[in-house]
Design a protein around this nucleic acid. Structure first.
Length: 271
DNA sequence: AAAAGCCCCTGGATGC
DNA sequence: TGCATCCAGGGGCTTT
């Protein structure tokens, strides 16, 4: 999926358009990861009050209740004033009087879930365990260091798990660890405070840069206007197995951690 | 309690 | 060209 930058760019691309709109209908096609959890018809007439983001979830706040939208691995949304007939992978149409928010998701790992409130069980189940927001003031260095101290797992997997910090997906986890000079296999609790501080900064930097570039490292990502950002941001290690490190020319290595690929430079990331 | 594995699903790339 | 295999941005759930 889309990692945090892509989700944030997606949010920015339709939040202003849909704010204040009235829901006309909600059409759900093929099953996504979870059922909506409510009769779609009950949403008709409610007002969209705003779109926020928590981790990789988009929170579409209604005059009553909210919709949790996740793009999964392959989801993208578009906001259309005159939507063409739904294609095979278009699974959600949130029709409003300002336009239709359409979810296209070939792999259907995405989800749209209704929650009566942010503290309702449907919401807390998905959001309750999430860690700090890396691009907000919430991302406190001391709390980050303490969070890492509490984890025995390899740092790459701790970043991915989203319990310490959210939004770092498989690409940016490798990229942030490269920037911080940390080997992905190191136990999180064994990272010294100064090195954790470097990682803290690296996570912020890599995500903020990607947002500024329009969420660009993903090869088939496009925002709600259908504009794509095809590898505008150069990866240092991700997907570069065997290619020379941009700093020291050592071939980049690929390993597997928790059935996900991890890339690193064995020289720049010694431990 | 925490960490590791297991799936969900489809399409594109690669290999024989 | 055709078919089989592998791989992919996530993450909740089940098993160790």
């Amino acid at each position: 999926m889309p990692e945090l930058p892509e989700v944030e760019v997606t949010r920015l691309s339709f939040a202003d358009c849909i704010q204040g709109a009235h829901v006309v209908a909600l059409h759900m096609g093929k099953a996504l990861r979870w059922p909506l959890g409510v009769d779609p018809d009950v949403l008709t007439g409610r007002t969209v009050q705003g779109v926020r983001r928590r981790g990789k979830y988009l929170l579409i706040h209604l005059s009553e209740g909210l919709l949790l939208l996740h793009l999964g691995m392959s989801g993208s949304v578009s906001f259309l004033s005159k939507p063409p007939p739904a294609g095979v992978h278009d699974h959600v149409d949130l029709v409003t009087d300002r336009g239709t928010l359409r979810l296209n998701d070939p792999r259907r790992f995405g989800a749209l879930v209704y929650a009566a409130s942010q503290t309702a069980p449907q919401a807390t189940k998905l959001l309750g365990h999430l860690g700090m927001e890396p691009l907000s003031d919430d991302f406190d260095l001391t709390a980050f260091v303490q969070g890492l101290k509490a984890k025995q797992a390899p740092i790459k997997q701790v970043l991915l798990a989203g319990e310490v910090v959210v939004g770092v997906g498989n690409i940016y986890a490798s990229e942030a660890l490269f920037l911080a000079g940390i080997r992905p296999t190191v136990k999180a609790c064994n990272i010294s405070k100064p090195r954790a501080a470097k990682l803290h900064q690296a996570v912020r930097d890599v995500l903020a840069r990607a947002v500024a570039k329009g969420g660009s490292t993903l090869k088939d990502f496009s925002n709600a206007y259908g504009e794509s950002g095809y590898f505008q941001l150069e990866a240092n290690v991700y997907g570069r197995t065997g290619e020379p490190c941009r700093v020291c020319s050592t071939p980049i290595q690929m390993i597997r951690q928790g059935q996900r690929a991890t890339f690193y430079c064995p020289v720049c990331q010694k431990h």
